[in-house]
Design a protein around this nucleic acid. Structure first.
Lengths: 208, 208
DNA sequence: CAGATAACATACAGTCTGCATGTAAATTGT
DNA sequence: ACAATTTACATGCAGACTGTATGTTATCTG
């Protein structure tokens, strides 16, 4: 009947506790919001004490950052799964955006990644996270399309950021109850509009 | 030598106190952030007590909402001032977006309106505010362009929201130190791309 | 197996928010 | 013009939360 204390290595303990904390925080941060979720509630859900939290994370923000990181990775993975490596460029972009909108329908995920994330961690930190995960495939898709002359040549960083922003807003609108159709239509139109079909403003880049 | 207590009407007192609170809050919310600004600090800067704050505003959020409302109105006014009522449609859009980017360079304004605002008040409330102020001229410009056949016919709400999102992200990037040029170029390209020059997918609207 | 270190738990200080209560000024009714 | 009422505040209080300091137990190292 001896309930062995299950001699676990320190690495295992840390890993398990961190995972528990992140999972509990993720659940609460997606159900409510960052501001409305207190650390007492998180540690209760994770089955530890606040001491453990502040041992593994510098502060509440750091735990939040870990959750955001994980969710961003999850979104990126869902996209890459749905959008096989190399469809032909324009189709890949459309497929990717559909996959993104689908991935963003996970309850609370849009608020976490698109509202609380930027506000709590700052846009710069979010850009960093996005560039390591989600935006990567978008930017590569855009570069591929530009190489294939399927798309007007434009500053890549700015184009990636602004298209991603449009995707994000669409995801928020859809989670808020809007129909997918119109937003998808506009997104497609914006992407299609970047085809170099018409000789719009062929001159050198304007200053200012 | 009688320092008259300056018999002021209640309406004047309320108006003055509310204005003081909003001004002090605006200053602090733009210098720091919503979360980092406490009500004790706000009322100290405004020269009143927390009692006055909670008499005039339901809570900290309500004060914040008043600040956001005022800033959104200021932005809208700067845009309408810079973009004379009716240039011809496409030019008006470009002029308007330039004015928007310029207005958004007021220190801290981008974070207030584009990061803290949505996170604290929610996207729905921010959409409401935007539709009453800034987005109005954008939407009207888009409708005008579509009427003049200068622009592909698209769902107006979605198009307005997604273009506004792109503008917002550009404003944030610029405030974060990015150069204006590339972002402006991409914005122009996105707008130009909506010209109905090429017969892209003339069929009936896709479902889903 | 002893000392050091890591993984927690517990206790505490400081701060904040929202409300309840108290007071002075203004408004209203007569 | 004066009493009653309402409005505009100020003060004080309760609860909650965050971050840290300190204490304890488990693991690792030599």
């Amino acid at each position: 009947m001896q309930q062995e204390p299950a001699r676990r290595s320190n690495r295992d303990r840390t890993e398990a506790t961190r995972a528990d904390l992140i999972a509990a925080a993720r659940k609460l941060f997606t159900e409510k919001s960052y501001a409305e979720t207190g650390t007492p509630e998180i540690v209760a859900a994770a089955g530890v004490t606040r001491g453990a939290l502040y041992h593994h994370f510098a502060d509440k923000q750091a735990l939040f950052a870990a959750v955001v990181e994980q969710e961003a990775a999850a979104v990126a993975e869902e996209i890459e799964r749905a959008s096989p490596p190399s469809l032909f460029a324009p189709d890949a972009l459309i497929a990717g955006s559909d996959a993104y909108l689908a991935a963003m329908r996970a309850p609370g995920r849009a608020r976490l990644l698109l509202l609380d994330g930027p506000a709590v961690l700052g846009r710069a930190a979010m850009d960093d996270i996005d560039n390591r995960h989600g935006n990567r495939s978008l930017r590569e898709g855009l570069i591929a399309a530009m190489r294939a002359q399927t798309m007007t040549r434009l500053p890549v960083e700015a184009l990636t950021a602004l298209l991603a922003a449009a995707f994000d807003r669409a995801a928020l609108a859809i989670e808020a109850g809007a129909e997918t159709g119109p937003y998808r239509e506009v997104l497609v139109a914006l992407i299609d509009g970047l085809s170099p079909t018409h000789p719009q403003a062929p001159g050198p880049a304007r200053t200012r």
